[in-house]
């Protein structure tokens, strides 16, 4: 057995600043568009800002550059330490959900960085959204460190430090239009290539422009319009919101099919219009349902209830629509 306390190495503290460089901003941009999504990491361990003393505050965060930078960019003029946990490049809230931003990891990092040698005041300030992964009383029991949950947003930290309390507003997660907009790019990129391939397939197999553009319309509605319109789409369920938006998306294609080109037989037009009505809404609803994972308020049991009820509906509607579409080729 090696007694860890007998090893007298000096605690390793890496200095950093509150300033963002051009390469930081570039990194944030790449992270937002989902380029090498899990590789926006910083080295876990202990960092310092300014000239912290043994009674300076210690903040805890994840080793995702967007998390680390959101924290330090709000600490201008505050001498402090930052303890970075190894969350494998995942943000605080998501990492807390899977317990990598968790009690065990926090205890391990407190010991590994020899934090007790660095500060006298054994208090840690954690982001509130780390709480799903951390048990404060468990950390106290195992390390003697008191966990304080700071505000949700790092931008409220200066005020939190001044008043030593977080207001109810600071404790609430908000999910506004701008928050939803920044999520668009990742979802869009995720679905972009399959959409292009499907669109080309629709072009070749069916009769050209209209079916091909209907595939693009699905992507546009589901990945861009859905997040923007989320609060205003009817019903609480994401799948029914998606079905509604998908139905609106299908309307122009139905109208053009019925009233646009009248060269083909009436039965062909009606069957093709019916196919659009059945094929377009389900994928929009499905991608919409998947947006639950990006939001800040859906519960696990609620999402499961939605899935059990609506995924079969999506599958049957879509499958029937594809059969009608195939049949319309021959009539």
């Amino acid at each position: 057995m090696i007694d860890l306390n007998s090893i007298s190495t000096k605690p390793l503290i890496t200095p950093t600043t509150h300033q963002m460089t051009l390469s930081d901003h570039w990194d944030h941009f790449l992270a937002r568009v989902g380029y090498k999504r899990s590789q926006h990491r910083i080295k876990p361990g202990l960092y310092s800002i300014g000239d912290p003393q043994s009674d300076s505050p210690v903040f805890v965060t994840a080793n995702y550059t967007l998390s680390f930078d959101a924290l330090r960019s709000n600490l201008e003029g505050i001498d402090c330490y930052i303890l970075v946990l190894d969350t494998f490049g995942v943000n605080v809230w998501c990492a807390a959900g899977k317990k990598t931003f968790g009690t065990d990891e926090l205890v391990m990092k407190i010991n590994a960085t020899q934090l007790k040698k660095v500060i006298d005041r054994h208090i840690l300030i954690l982001p509130q959204l780390g709480a799903p992964g951390i048990s404060a009383h468990e950390v106290k029991k195992r390390t003697g460190f008191k966990v304080q949950y700071g505000p949700v947003r790092a931008s409220d930290l200066p005020e939190y430090l001044r008043t030593n309390r977080a207001t109810p507003e600071m404790r609430k997660v908000i999910f506004g239009l701008s928050d939803r907009m920044v999520l668009i790019s990742v979802d869009f990129k995720h679905n972009f290539l399959p959409t292009i391939l499907l669109s080309i397939a629709a072009w070749l197999l069916l009769d050209g422009l209209l079916p091909a553009s209907s595939v693009l319309a699905i992507l546009f509605s589901a990945s861009i319009l859905f997040p923007i319109l989320l609060p205003w789409l009817p019903s609480k369920n994401f799948s029914t919101k998606g079905f509604f938006l998908g139905f609106l998306t299908a309307i122009p294609f139905i109208l053009v099919t019925l009233f646009g080109n009248t060269d083909t037989s009436l039965i062909h037009q009606i069957s093709r219009a019916l196919a659009y009505l059945l094929v377009i809404p389900p994928p929009v609803a499905y991608i919409g349902l998947n947006f639950t994972g990006a939001t800040t308020f859906t519960s696990k049991s609620g999402v499961r209830r939605e899935m059990l009820r609506y995924i079969p509906v999506m599958a049957w509607t879509f499958g029937t629509g594809i059969l009608v579409m195939i049949a319309s080729i021959f009539i």
Partner: peptide, 21 residues
């Protein structure tokens, strides 16, 4: 997780359809 007297119970998890699928 942070209730020291275990007065609160919730079947917790990530409310994310993609993850569940």
């Amino acid at each position: 997780l942070n209730c020291v007297t275990a007065a609160i119970k919730v079947d917790s998890g990530v409310g994310c359809a993609a993850g569940m699928i």
